[in-house]
Design a protein around this nucleic acid. Structure first.
Lengths: 198, 198, 198, 198
DNA sequence: CATGAATGAGAATTCATTCAT
DNA sequence: CATGAATGAATTCTCATTCAT
C-alpha cells in the first residue's frame, strides 16, 4: 500500500505500457495459455529479454496487466460514478460506463477475465479488486433500498448478477470483435431495471 | 453427426469415462493450463501413455470432455425440460434443472467453462452446443412471448443473460466448493421472473 | 535413512549409472560451471530430456553423483580399511586405498571436489560424508594415540591435513590426466609417517 | 610480461580496485558460478556497464582478480620471505606469512581457489604463478637440503604438500568465516617440521 | 565516464507425443 | 492394452555483452 513509488523514467513507462498492451492483445486474441513471452514479444515488436528486463518475470507482467485494467477501470468507471449522488443515477452511470469501458478497452477486459479464469497466481492480487467491483454495486443497491428507490432483494446476490450481466458483454466481443454491444446494453439495462425497481 | 459408431468395448468405455472425469477434476481444481497429461494421468491413476492410446491426442481428450458435458447436460437438463409444455413450466424447469446440474456436476461444468475461456481449439466443436444452449432458452422465451405469457423484449439478448446468470453459479462453486447455491438460485429466479413476466 | 527403497528397474539403473558417469566426466574435464545438461547429455549420448526424466532436476543429478562417489569410496576404501585392526595397519591401508581410489576413479573424485568447491546446494548432503571422511582418520589417529603407537598431536587438525594431502592428488590428476601418482603417494606416506610416529 | 604499462588514471585505478574487491567478495561468499556480473555490480555499487567498461569482459575481470591476488601475495609473503637467508628462516617465514595472508585476505584467497577450481580460462594465466608458488617452496627445500638442514626427500613433491597444507586453511575459513586458524597453523607447522627436519 | 536499455545465446525445465516391449 | 522410456519442441529465465545517450 505505502510502498516507495518506483519513479519510473519516461522511456520505461512507455515500454511497460507497450508491453502491457501487447500482452492484453495476445491473451484476448488466443487465450491465456497461448500467450507465451515469445508471442507477446513478437506482438510488442521487442525481444523476449526486454520483457523480463522490465518486469522481472512473467508472473509480474500478468500482475501488472491486471493492475493496469483496474487503474483504467477506476478512471473510466469509478470517476464518473462518483460524480453521481442518487441511487438511480449511480446505477445508471455504473452500467453505461461499464459497457463503454468494455467497448473501449476490449482487449484489456477480455485479458482480465481470461487471466482470472485461468486461476493464475496473480489472481489473488486481483481478487480483492474484483470483489470490490461487486461490492461497489452492492453498496449502490443497498443505498437504493434504504432510500426506497429499489425493491427488497438480497443485494449481495443481485450485485453478483449485475456484475455478470455486464462482464458477459466482453465474451461477446471476444467471439465477435465487430459485435455491436448497444442492443445488448439496452436490453440488459431494461432487464436489470425491471428486476430492481418496484 | 452420422458417423459410424466406433463400437467401444466395455473396458474401453470405462477407461475413457475414468480419464474424462479425471480431466474435469484437474481442470476444475487448478485451471486449464495446470492440467497437463501428467497431472491428469496421476489423477486417473493411469500412465500418460494410456490416455493417448485411448484419445489419440490431448486435443481430442479435451474435445471428449466437452462432448461428455453436453451429453450429461442433455440428459439432466434437456430431458426434464422436454417434458414440459407451458412456457412457464419450460423456463422454470430449465432454470432449476440447470442449477441442479451445476451442483451435481460441478467439476464438469467448471471444466467446460475453463476450456471455453482458454480458447481451446476444441471450443469450435463446443460452440455449436453452447450457442444451442442459448438458443434453447431463446426458443422458450419466444414461445412465451407468442403465448402472451412473457413481456416484449429481445429474446436473443435476454436468452444470453439468463444463460449467463446460470453459468456464473459455477464460478461461485469454483471459488468456494462448499458454497450453497440455493440463495443465489432463489434470487436469480426472482430476478429473471421480475424481468420477463409482465 | 529408512526411506522406502526405490526399487529401480535394471534398465533404469543402467541409464542412471551412464548419466552419472557422463556427469562426472564433464565436470572433471571442464569444471562445474561448464557442465550444463546439454553437455552432459551429449557426453552420455542421450537427449537432455532423458536426464530430467531419470533425475527430475539437475540438482538431484548432482546429488546422485555425490552419493555415488561416496558409495564407491566406501566399497573401495571403507571395506579394506575395516579389515584392519592395528592403528598402523588402519592408517596404511587408508592411505594406499585412497590413492588407489583416486587413480581408479579419477573423474568421480575430481567431480566431487569441484562440486563441493562450487558450493552447490547438494553439498549439504555431502558435507556429512566429507566430514565423516575426516572423522574416520581422526578416529584412527586417536586409536593410535591411545595405543601409544602415534605421537601426541591434535588428532582433529592432523586428520584434516592427511585428508588434504590425499585430496590434492586429484588436482594433480586433473591438471595432468596422465600423471603418475606413485611418486607423490610414496612421499606423502613418508611425510605423514615422519609426522605422526614417535 | 614486458608490455607497455597502460598508465591508468587515479580514478580508474580506484574503480578497478573497487570492482576487483567486490568480485572477490562475491565469489568467496557464494561460489564462482553464483558470481554474475549483476551480483558483482550490486556488491560494488556500480552498474554492470561500468565493469565491462573498465575490464572489457568478465573473463578479463576474473584474470585481473587472479593477478591482484598474486601481487598482494608477493607483497605480503614474498617480500618478508626474501628478507630471510637461512633455510629454516625462509621456511618459517614462508609458512607464517602465508597463514597471515590467508587470514588477512580471506576473500581474495578463497576467490582465487574457487576460480582455479572452476577451471576458468583465466586459470592458464594463473597457473604459472601457482606453480611458481610451489616452486618457491621447492627452492627453499632444496636449499635446506644442500645445507644439510633438511632431510632427504623429493623436494618437488614435498613442496606440493606444504603448499596444500597451507591452502586448505582457506577452505576452513570459507566454511566458517569466524574460524580461528591459529590452532591449525601451529599443528601444521609442527607437522611439517616433523616431516622435514632430520 | 557512466548508465539504462536492449539483445541474443544458452540455461533448466515442462510437456505432448512416439515407440519398443 | 498398458507402461516405461525417450524425444524434441517450446517455455521461462539468466547472463554477458553492446550501444545510444
Amino acid at each position: 500500500m505505502s510502498e516507495i513509488p518506483p519513479q519510473l523514467t519516461a522511456i520505461e513507462r512507455t515500454r511497460r505500457a507497450q508491453i502491457i498492451e501487447a500482452t492484453a492483445v495476445c491473451i484476448a486474441a488466443n487465450g491465456y495459455s497461448a500467450a507465451s513471452l515469445a508471442t507477446i514479444a513478437k506482438q510488442a515488436g521487442v525481444s523476449k529479454g526486454v520483457i523480463l528486463y522490465h518486469f522481472g518475470s512473467k508472473d509480474t507482467l500478468i500482475e501488472e496487466v491486471l493492475k493496469h485494467v483496474y487503474v483504467l477501470a477506476d478512471a473510466e468507471i469509478g470517476i464518473p460514478v462518483r460524480a453521481e449522488t442518487t441511487p438511480k443515477g449511480l446505477l445508471n452511470v455504473y452500467i453505461s460506463a461499464s459497457f463503454a469501458f468494455i467497448s473501449a478497452r476490449r482487449d484489456y477486459v477480455i485479458a482480465l477475465l481470461l487471466i482470472l479464469a485461468d486461476g493464475h497466481a496473480a489472481s489473488r492480487i486481483a481478487d480483492g479488486a474484483h470483489i470490490s467491483a461487486t461490492e461497489d454495486i452492492k453498496n449502490i443497491l443497498e443505498y437504493g433500498q434504504t432510500e426506497g428507490v429499489f425493491r427488497a432483494f438480497d443485494a449481495g446476490e443481485v450485485a453478483k448478477m449485475i456484475r455478470t450481466l455486464i462482464d458477459v458483454a466482453s465474451y461477446t466481443l471476444r467471439d465477435d470483435p465487430a459485435a455491436d454491444l448497444s442492443a445488448y446494453a439496452r436490453e440488459a439495462r431494461a432487464f436489470i431495471q425491471a428486476a430492481i425497481y418496484p
